[in-house]
């Protein structure tokens, strides 16, 4: 039993390394000189180190990644914040406030969940152009701010809050705003954290919306810039890999920090972006 566990662990570690080889290759190539990229057998640890110059070209070159980082952080943080707020408010309204037509409204909102975004992207594009939000960060943020999934996920948590807490607060004279902010919000903090991390990751990695709703170079998000960079420097694989590392690794670090929350959240909600 013990022996088989040892063997299986070693085997799985080998599989794991194999699984992550694309990442390892990417990182190692990003620090090489161009002529060493396709050297065979592969030099996993670059013999001649050119990492500094590669990353300088990516970060402050023709496509200044520091700017795209700033854009991406701005869009992602604001989208996450607004989306969490809107979803929490709606979830509270749909569970803890009693008004006529509430459940019908919720069903309508829930039904829109099965509409794939791609099937409405053309009208969305026309809408954004007609209200002058095309090619702006605000437009991009608005597109990601009304999440049915978020509302649904957080609603599940609100439903598990006993109504007695709310009644007690009402008797003490608290209005809905105060109950929402001071009583229920602290209770659903884990749900908020999970959803916020997921929304952050999805928005950070989103490529389709920036591609369609942004045009000006200086508004580009990281993913869009990454692709433009690869188009321009396609023949310089070491540079492209340095850009890929810059696009992938920071988020992986965020994931490693919040991995428990992310993995539990995924398992709990069975959610998919």
């Amino acid at each position: 039993m013990k022996l088989s566990k040892i063997l299986l662990t070693i085997l799985m570690l080998a599989c794991g390394i194999l699984f992550l080889l694309p990442f390892i290759w990417m990182i190692s190539t990003s620090m090489k000189f161009e002529q060493d990229v396709f050297h065979y057998p592969i030099e996993w640890i670059p013999v001649n180190f050119n990492g500094f110059s590669n990353y300088m070209k990516v970060w402050v070159g023709d496509y200044p990644f520091y700017l795209y980082y700033w854009n991406t952080i701005k869009v992602t943080v604001l989208t996450t914040f607004i989306s969490v707020l809107v979803s929490c408010m709606a979830a509270y309204g749909f569970t803890k406030v009693h008004f006529r037509g509430r459940d019908a409204l919720f069903l309508i909102v829930l039904a829109t969940f099965m509409v794939p975004q791609q099937s409405i992207i053309v009208p969305q594009f026309i809408l954004m152009r007609s209200i002058n939000l095309f090619d702006t960060h605000i437009g991009l943020i608005l597109l990601g701010s009304f999440s049915v999934l978020g509302t649904f996920m957080i609603r599940q948590f609100f439903m598990s809050i006993n109504n007695e807490f709310i009644e007690a607060a009402r008797i003490d004279g608290a209005g809905h705003t105060r109950i929402f902010l001071n009583v229920t919000m602290p209770m659903i903090r884990p749900a908020i954290a999970t959803y916020a991390i997921l929304r952050f990751i999805w928005t950070w990695n989103d490529y389709q919306n920036p591609l369609i709703f942004l045009r000006t170079d200086q508004y580009y998000t990281l993913q869009l810039a990454m692709n433009k960079f690869a188009d321009t420097y396609g023949q310089f694989y070491s540079l492209t890999m340095a850009a890929a590392v810059s696009a992938i690794i920071p988020l992986l670090i965020v994931f490693l920090i919040g991995q428990k929350q992310v993995i539990e959240g995924i398992a709990l909600g069975g959610v998919k972006g």
Partner: peptide
């Protein structure tokens, strides 16, 4: 868990380019 989850978290554009 973390190892096998990493590609899922990674930016599709970055992965595609690699």
């Amino acid at each position: 868990k973390i190892i096998y989850f990493m590609p899922y978290i990674s930016s599709v554009v970055g992965v595609a380019v690699v």
